[in-house]
Each structure stands twice: as structure tokens, then as C-alpha cells.
Amino acid sequence: MIEVELRVNGTAHRVELDPRVSLLDALREQLGLTGTKKGCNQGACGACTVLVDGDRIAACLALAVQYGGREITTIEGVAHPLQRAFVRTDGLQCGYCTPGQICSALGMLAEADAGMPSAVTEHLAEPRVTLSSAEVRERMSGNLCRCGAYNGITDAIREVAGARPGVSS
């Protein structure tokens, strides 16, 4: 067992961890933060997306012992207009992929703010990103939604992106 300080949503937790425990399982089973979901446990669905120091990652493929001292944000620590936008645009149905979609979208918006390109970015050297529908859809493709709420999710993200300075949609 390894003692690690997990900093989640601004709170530090000292936990004893079997090094096999994924960040996802540590959050869900040890800290009781079940808002982060397990959909495939293989990095293939995005339901477990959390933010680490602002970057979105798949918590199922992260060993928790690797993330001591980092600032981890889960859906329980998110209070953002995007959540309301998801409800308004109906960017959800069963709700199981939703926390991952929202955390992923927040990480994605930060990436766009930093000018990071995507696989569909026409002019790679262009330092600014325009979050067209195609850009949002490509950048969010790591988050599966079997209910098929993709249109609403894209709308919610573009609505919030457009409302912020520095990012055009």
C-alpha cells in the first residue's frame, strides 16, 4: 500500500492505495465521488473524464498513485454555465455519459483557448481556434453517447464557447 495525497475539487485526501487502483476507482470507491462514471474501463468511451491541472484525461487508465499532489476536478467540483446549457439544449438522456461529456468539454474549451489545433483544423499554424460544429465534434469524439444526444451537446458547448471572450464559434 502506498500513501498518496489526492487533491480533489480543492480538498486534500490522504489515502492508502494499492498501486493497481485506478484514479477512477479511487474516486468512486474510496472517496465516494461517483459522479465520474465507468463505461468501458479501457479509455474508449470517455465517461470517466476528469480534469487534472485543467487537462482532461481518462481516469480509468490512470493509476491513482501517479496523481498525488495534482489538482483533480471531477463533476462534483464543477459549477459552470455549461451544465445549465446541457439541460437547456437537452444534451443528455440517460445521463451516464454526461459528467464525462461536461468535464471533457471544459478541458476542450481550455485547449481551444490555448490555440491547440485538432485533426480537422484547416490551417495548423493558425494560433487561434474557431470552434465550428465540425471542430467541436472532432474534439469531443472521445466521449461516446449511446443515447445519441450529440446534437444537443454540440449546441451546449458552442453556446457557452460563443459567450466567452477570445473564442469565436
Binding site: T34, K37, V78, Q83, V87, L92, G95, T98, P99, I102
Partner: peptide, 21 residues
């Protein structure tokens, strides 16, 4: 009408079957 459980689902508060402590 917006979903009555929209807030529960977008805030991580909606509990599914593996999530009851």
C-alpha cells in the same frame, strides 16, 4: 420543458446502480 432530473444528471448527483454506498 427541461428535464426534471437535468440538474441531478449534469452535476454528478444522479446515482446509478453501482453507486449506492
Amino acid at each position: 420543458v427541461d428535464r426534471v432530473d437535468g440538474t441531478a444528471k449534469t452535476s454528478g448527483q444522479a446515482r446509478y446502480s453501482a453507486e449506492f454506498p
